[in-house]
C-alpha cells in the first residue's frame, strides 16, 4: 500500500510538469488517431488495439487508480482467474525456465509457429546464475524458499502470473493467463520454476 502511495506521489509530481504544457486529450480524438494509425491492420490484429475495461481505466488513471477504483479492478480481475482443473499449480520447473528465458511470440515479426515465451527475465531477476535480467519488476530470486515452499503461496503465485491485476490493480505485468498469452501448462511450469526446491531460483 505504501508503495502504491509513493508511486502515486511520483506520478503526480511528474504529471504536474506535463499539465503545465497541455490539457488531457479528449478520448474521442485519441480514438480517431488510434483508428488511423492502424487503419490497414487485419481484423485479428486490429482486435488488439481495442481496450478492455481494465486497460482503458488504467490508461486513464495513468496506472494510479484511486482506492475505490483499485478495489473494483482487483475484484473484476480476480473473478476471471481460472485455476487448473487437476488442482495442482506446479508443473515442470525446467520447462518453466524456458518460458522465463524466452521473449519471442506475439510480435508482428513472429511467424505463426513461433514459440511464445513469458520473457520473465526481461523484467525480473530469477535464477542467480542468469546475469541478463531486467529491473522493471522486483527480484524473484529465492522466491519459493522465502515462502517455505508453501502450497498456499504457490497458488497465489499462479494467480499472480495468470492475472497480476487480480492482486494489484493496474500492475504493469501482463495478465498472461487472462489474455491467453501463456497456456495453463506454461503458467504451471513457471510457478514450478519459482517454487521447486530443485529450481535454480531457490539455490
Amino acid at each position: 500500500m505504501k508503495k502504491t502511495m509513493l508511486a502515486a506521489c511520483f506520478i503526480l509530481v511528474s504529471g504536474t510538469a506535463f499539465a503545465q504544457q497541455a490539457a488531457q486529450a479528449d478520448p474521442a480524438t485519441v480514438d480517431r488517431y488510434v483508428q488511423s494509425m492502424w487503419a490497414k491492420a487485419s481484423p485479428e490484429w486490429k482486435a488488439r488495439i481495442v481496450q478492455d475495461e481494465t486497460q482503458a481505466e488504467c490508461s486513464a488513471a495513468r496506472n494510479t487508480p484511486g482506492p475505490a477504483q483499485f478495489e473494483k479492478i482487483v475484484a473484476r480481475e480476480k473473478a476471471g482467474v481460472v485455476f487448473p482443473a487437476d488442482g495442482t499449480v506446479l508443473g515442470d520447473w525446467k520447462s518453466g525456465a524456458k518460458v522465463a528465458n524466452t521473449g519471442t511470440g506475439g510480435q508482428f515479426s513472429d511467424g505463426p509457429d513461433t514459440y511464445v515465451g513469458g520473457n520473465c527475465y526481461a523484467c525480473h531477476q530469477m535464477a542467480p546464475g542468469e546475469l541478463s535480467y531486467g529491473t522493471l519488476g522486483p527480484s524473484l530470486t529465492g522466491y519459493g524458499k522465502a515462502r517455505n515452499f508453501s502450497a498456499e503461496a504457490a497458488k497465489a503465485a499462479y494467480a499472480k502470473i495468470y492475472n497480476a491485476q487480480s492482486v494489484m490493480a493496474c500492475s504493469q505485468m501482463p495478465r498472461f493467463g487472462h489474455n491467453r498469452f501463456l497456456t495453463e501448462q506454461q503458467i504451471k511450469d513457471v510457478t514450478a520454476f519459482l517454487f521447486d526446491p530443485e529450481s535454480p531460483v531457490n539455490k
Binding site: A22, V30, I49, Q51, C58, S59, P174, R175, N179, R180
Partner: peptide, 18 residues
C-alpha cells in the same frame, strides 16, 4: 492537440500483454 494525443498514446495500454 498533437501533444495531448501523444501523451495519451504514450500511456495507452492495449494488446495481449497490456
Amino acid at each position: 492537440e498533437m501533444l495531448a494525443v501523444g501523451e495519451a498514446l504514450f500511456h495507452r495500454r492495449a494488446g495481449v500483454n497490456d
